[in-house]
């Protein structure tokens, strides 16, 4: 009735579509960093889109199944192996009781989503099965997986055939450089105009410090600030503000040197100025970025951000149609 964790991989955790509603108390939404891939994995095995899956980072786990299961692996190109035999990504396949699901080396992307029919059935906490490791909340024991963990699987609601696949055209590609679209704002007036222009013109790279909380970047010029007398309570560094709430996707630049984009496990607030916010349509992309990946930030306005949001919604609708169609065959 379960999955036994033989090897956990680097950072594998249980995630679903998250637990919104508690950010005002410091509990971030969590959930899959690449939600599109998470939804696709679930749809491929006949689950509800928001069922809990495993999010594996950079390296796959090794899992023994104690019951027959239908599996799909999406997101990063992390080649699945069943008892050593290759299986395709973005395609459902069967694993028999006693078989071991392992993975080859990562070829592209950063996070793979491993869905099993029935979903990972850990208890829901505040409405979600997602893991928030910093707060030891949700998921399996509030942490990333360890060898020896046993994960329960839920009852299978909707039986589907193996071999369902997401069409090539609906599998996102990671361009190089990755271009992240940003709506400037928040405290961007703190930097000089030249510094803002430089931020958007410069070539950046993902730094080693890149996790579910946030992604750090290096390589661009240091930001210059407009001189001012710091407001009471803000702190003495020109990049300091009176501690405020941080939006998901907001880009803070402590001391003006290395931008950090907050993601699904965001710290909810703090005292660093923010230059803008990555638009919702590009958040999934960040979850697939590896350290050293070349990155550019592109300024957009609100109508462009909303148009990108509609495009993302249409891509998701196309994915749903394509898998419904498969199901009817």
């Amino acid at each position: 009735m379960a999955i036994e964790v033989i090897k956990p991989g680097l950072a594998t955790s249980v995630q679903d579509l998250g637990r919104p509603g508690y950010y005002h108390l410091g509990i971030p939404e969590s959930g899959g960093m690449d939600r599109y891939a998470l939804r696709a994995a679930n749809l491929l095995v006949g689950n509800a889109e928001g069922d809990a899956v495993l999010e594996a980072t950079f390296q796959g786990p090794e899992l023994r199944f104690t019951r027959d299961a239908l599996i799909a692996v999406t997101g990063a190109e992390l080649p699945p192996l069943v008892d050593g035999a290759a299986r395709p990504t973005w395609t459902s396949f069967a694993v028999r009781a006693g078989e071991v699901l392992g993975f080859g080396f990562l070829k592209q992307g950063a996070r793979a989503y491993i869905a099993a029919a029935g979903g990972i059935d850990v208890p829901a906490v505040l409405g979600s099965r997602s893991t928030y490791a910093l707060g030891a909340l949700g998921g399996f024991a509030g942490r990333k997986l360890e060898a020896g963990d046993v994960l329960p699987l839920g009852a299978i609601g909707n039986t589907v055939q193996e071999g369902r696949a997401v069409p090539e055209a609906l599998r996102p590609l990671l361009p190089s450089p990755v271009i992240l679209r940003v709506l400037p704002g928040l405290y961007d007036f703190r930097t000089t105009e030249a510094a803002r222009d430089g931020f958007f013109a410069d070539a950046w790279k993902v730094a080693a410090e890149a996790d579910r909380i946030g992604y750090r970047f290096r390589g661009g010029r240091k930001l210059e600030f407009v001189p001012r007398r710091q407001p009471f309570g803000a702190g003495s560094d020109p990049s300091n503000i009176v501690d405020s709430c941080y939006p998901y996707g907001s880009i803070q630049v402590p001391a003006g040197s290395e931008p950090i984009i907050l993601h699904r496990d965001a710290v909810s607030g703090g005292g660093y100025f923010m230059i803008g916010t990555v638009i919702s349509a590009d958040m999934d992309l960040i979850g697939q970025m590896q350290p050293n990946m070349p990155t550019r930030f592109a300024p957009v306005d609100m109508p462009q951000a909303l148009a990108a949001r509609r495009d993302a919604a249409e891509r998701l609708a196309a994915l749903r149609r394509s898998l419904e169609y498969n199901q009817k065959l």
């Binding site: 704002g185 928040l186 405020s244 939006p247 998901y248 996707g249 638009i279 919702s280």
Partner: peptide, 8 residues
């Protein structure tokens, strides 16, 4: 606005 989902 903080992206298309937040207002500060």
């Amino acid at each position: 606005f903080g992206g298309d989902e937040h207002i500060f």
